[in-house]
Design a protein around this nucleic acid. Structure first.
Lengths: 380, 380
DNA sequence: CGATTCTAGTCAGGGCCCTTGCCTAGAAAG
DNA sequence: CTTTCTAGGCAAGGGCCCTGACTAGAATCG
């Protein structure tokens, strides 16, 4: 008599979501296992599996319960269908491009690495990006549903392009990763209906590295001190990117320079002669081998930046990362002790340059891939 | 055969929530009006009203549909029960204490104003607060379910107490508003089960004033320049308070002082002799009558603070409020034009000192009161 | 003034989703 | 070969919502 009952769909969608999430966690389950795992009845579990199989999200693996479990009838294992596809996780840094394909379980299916020249030539970077991503997707043999990109330069939140802020280090150069990767990405048609279903997400690498920090409480800040200067601010459990995505671009933050003058953060390195000639990057090697006096000047400048972060964002603690940040943590800590508001400081847990970024990128890619699967089923 | 079916409760709870929200918006509706308004069938609307009436959340007003509507049977108007209670909205500022009781429709039921001495004496402030709140609740004749407080000093997020930051203006003084107001607040018993159901919420007044700004897009910052210096940072649509609730306490933010030296923001006023003798407050009158040179120094310091906010939070625009901020907006704007990253600046829409704060406090109080009603029904 | 008109509210029947209880299938253990 | 034990399916029933028909009751019209 009736056929449109949106309110009832709600509970069915909830059941299906539980089934999908259980399969993401356990990889393969029989219908009976699903029922006990989720806390629903076996007929309901069976119905849900039937619906999801019909929709192509779940498939019978062909495996049967091992006899080792004891006597009793054999059960059929179900798992998420391979057609669900993979997510592309990409980092773009001066050291090169890394592209990985992740499946819905978070496993790396394929990985491509492409070096790039220094200084970076935009055309070559674009080529390496396209090449690495295409190879990873091709080789995985599965459709890429979305891409998450971490880049070592400021990213415009609206367009996803890398942008050159005046006088700040600009390492990778003009690039539009979204445009390059879009042809490789084939989202499930249904996902496109969703408002927020972006196919390619680009963000600054520091923000992703912060995401990969362990513990990750509600409020902290990640200060990146390397060839560039960056800062990720995590507030109420989320990385805050700001209106254009340029939150934490601290190159021009006023801080204490030589002789106590107020100058932009990046200028301090100019005045100390620690920028690479002909580029906008900080010379990491020379910072690491600098003398005590220069180190103290740098530490005072860093402490000034920390004071600004504390005043404006009130983090629970500061994490110091980047190529030279952790090496100077003692001086930095000493300088920060003088600040009116004290804040615990520690070095970043991961010290490499690409791996922590990639870890954060992968975490987000996985989260989004999984969400896309769950959303897909509720929107049919 | 069965009695526990949590999944089905979900859809019933959804229906009840829709009914409650519709009544919050329209104040009184017949069951038939509820059905068409929400888009459910009349029997369902009738059932929901019966449940909610039984639970004491909804009551028959006794009114009947006016004959003027035309022929047809008269309908019974239902409305939210008065026992739902009121929310207490309070501001504590050097000018005095204001306490208002709001009903679930956002109307002010009672309002009490108590002046306090300058400088504030903690015991008197506590007395005025207790007195104003008690009078407002008493007179309203209805139980207060929660309280939201705006105070003109830094607020510790965990304890809700006003805290004295070293050397920063401290206008109201030691105070624990939560302890004072808790005896007046009687939350619905059920609400207490909810994890986040705080009875008394305290926050810095600047944060609330930002909440009351019109338009209120996703990312902006509100710079408060008055007796104290404060800043509210709205990121992704929410006021970000930081780990201790001290985000935006910018008195010690390093900025440009006289002769281009890097000094804390509040020190600039010291060096210009613009702090009230014997207190930690800025002398607003003398700032307003200051000469061009001092104004330029102040503007440069403000621009330094703005640069820090832009670098760290990347707001879409800056709003300047407080007793003297809008008066100096031209010089501030001129100084900010020199910054490497440009940001639109405008004066706050509301210029008074307590009214914009109270508006934000009331908005939050209303939001929480309404939520508490909706949650109450779903937790039975 | 009575018949008509029109709307609020209720009742009966039915569909969907879930649950419990019972049955069948089918392999291992004895 | 019989027993044992588990996966899966079927049937019945309850809760929620919906549609459609019915009742209640006041205003309007002839």
């Amino acid at each position: 008599m009736t056929d449109a009952k949106p309110s009832q769909d709600l509970v069915r969608a909830r059941t299906d979501e539980h089934v999908l999430r259980a399969l993401m966690q356990h990889r393969r389950l029989t219908r009976a296992e699903l029922a006990t795992e989720i806390g629903i009845s076996r007929p309901t579990a069976g119905e849900s599996v039937r619906r999801l199989t019909e929709r192509g999200l779940v498939a019978d693996t062909g495996e049967r319960t091992p006899g080792g479990r004891g006597r009793g009838r054999v059960g059929s294992y179900y798992a998420l269908a391979p057609e669900i596809g993979v997510a592309l996780a990409v980092t773009i840094a001066p050291a090169g491009v890394v592209a990985e394909c992740l499946d819905v379980y978070g496993d790396t299916v394929t990985r491509a690495v492409r070096p790039i020249d220094r200084p970076a030539r935009p055309a070559q970077v674009a080529g390496a990006l396209r090449d690495a991503a295409a190879w990873a997707v091709e080789t995985s043999g599965r459709p890429a549903r979305l891409a998450v990109v971490g880049a070592a330069d400021p990213v415009d939140r609206a367009t996803g392009r890398l942008v050159h802020l005046p006088d700040a280090p600009f390492l990778v150069g003009e690039l539009d990763p979204a445009a390059i990767l879009a042809p490789l990405v084939h989202p499930r048609p249904i996902t496109a209906e969703d408002g927020e279903a972006l196919e390619v997400i680009v963000d600054n690498d520091v923000n992703w590295a912060a995401l990969a920090e362990p513990g990750r409480p509600g409020d902290f800040a990640y200060l990146y001190l390397g060839e560039g200067l960056g800062c990720a601010i995590v507030s109420d459990g989320e990385v805050r990117r700001g209106h254009s995505g340029l939150a934490g671009e601290i190159a021009h933050l006023l801080t204490v320079g030589p002789k106590g003058r107020a100058i932009p953060f990046i200028e301090v390195f100019n005045e100390l002669g620690l920028r690479r000639p002909g580029t906008t990057a900080i010379d990491v090697d020379r910072v690491l081998t600098s003398k005590s006096g220069a180190r103290k000047t740098i530490a005072a400048a860093v402490a000034g930046a920390i004071a600004a972060v504390v005043a404006l964002a009130d983090p629970q603690h500061m994490v110091i990362g980047g190529e030279w940040g952790p090496a100077l943590i003692d001086v930095i800590e000493a300088a920060a002790k003088e600040l009116p508001r004290n804040v615990p400081i520690r070095a970043a847990a991961h010290t490499g340059t690409t791996e922590p970024v990639l870890a954060g990128v992968k975490a987000e890619a996985l989260r989004r891939l999984r969400s896309s699967v769950v959303w897909a089923q509720s929107l049919t």
